[in-house]
């Protein structure tokens, strides 16, 4: 089943994450997406959106950013676009998940989850915008090494 892009506008407020989750859920239902993909998409999008909300804008003003979701026979694609200062979340070093609990930084896990839950994640600075594109192949489950 193909779905042409649907776009949700969000403001940089934490409460918006609730609206995002409801919207993604509706998209997943329309597409008849099953677990584990459904939850994986939810997690990846919450991580990306909460990064934009918490860290994207430093001026204390209200900003709008968008999440677009589309699907074709092979792939579900999500594109998150904001006009915050240039920031590539993928440039951050991988978190060391082998560290013992006491030494484990409590942040940094979000983008790690995004990288590993999606098949492809790409960042691009387009003019004054940050564009993060997430792709997840339908029907595949990336193998996870026991960690």
């Amino acid at each position: 089943m193909n779905l042409s892009p649907r776009i949700l506008s969000l403001t940089n407020k934490r409460a918006e994450l609730r609206r995002l989750a409801a919207w993604v859920d509706e998209f997943a239902t329309t597409l008849d997406l099953r677990e584990p993909m459904r939850g994986e998409l939810q997690v990846a999008l919450e991580e990306v959106a909460s990064n934009v909300i918490k860290h994207g804008f430093r001026d204390g003003a209200t900003h709008t950013f968008t999440v677009a979701l589309s699907a074709d026979a092979d792939c579900v694609t999500a594109v998150v676009t904001d006009d915050a200062p240039a920031f590539d979340p993928l440039a951050r070093a991988e978190v060391d998940i082998a560290l013992p609990l006491e030494a484990r930084p409590i942040g940094g896990l979000g983008i790690h989850l995004v990288r590993h839950l999606m098949d492809d994640v790409a960042y691009e600075r387009r003019g004054a915008r940050n564009v993060l594109t997430l792709r997840r192949r339908r029907g595949s489950t990336a193998p996870v090494a026991e960690m």
Binding site: P36, I97, A98, L101, H112, L117, V144, A145, M147
Partner: peptide
């Protein structure tokens, strides 16, 4: 835990923590 939820713990590296 369901298998998908367990998988989130493994990806996060917290399955043994």
């Amino acid at each position: 835990m369901s298998a998908p939820v367990r998988r989130f713990f493994d990806i996060a590296g917290l399955g043994r923590v």
